[in-house]
């Protein structure tokens, strides 16, 4: 079971690396922030898998903090939008 979870985490990390391509390409800022949100979600997935695989329940807390701060980053980005972009 641990081997399977580790493999799943590895696959997620690979997908994370793929998501970084979108972050680098853009082209708009909204695309980049979307890529950040995606990578945040992927990291949460990896953390949850690792917390089972490594028997470290505290990683669930780390994942929770990431979920909450991802929302915060989205809010920080959309605060008073400007039309000239």
């Amino acid at each position: 079971m641990t081997a399977f979870l580790t493999l799943a985490a590895l696959v997620l990390l690979l997908l994370f690396a793929l998501g970084l391509v979108r972050m680098a390409l853009g082209p708009t800022r909204a695309d980049r922030i979307q890529a950040v949100q995606l990578s945040g979600t992927t990291t949460v997935g990896i953390l949850l898998l690792l917390s089972e695989a490594l028997a470290m329940p505290a990683l669930v807390h780390v994942a929770l903090v990431f979920v909450l701060f991802a929302a915060l980053i989205a809010v920080a980005f959309v605060r008073h939008p400007r039309s000239q972009e």
Partner: peptide, 25 residues
């Protein structure tokens, strides 16, 4: 995000939490 993951791999969940809250967030 990635640094937090690396801290968990180094068996330091405390630092991962700090990185998640302060560093990335």
């Amino acid at each position: 995000l990635m640094l937090a993951l690396s801290w968990t791999r180094l068996d330091a969940p405390d630092l991962a939490l700090a990185e998640a809250g302060i560093g990335a967030g």
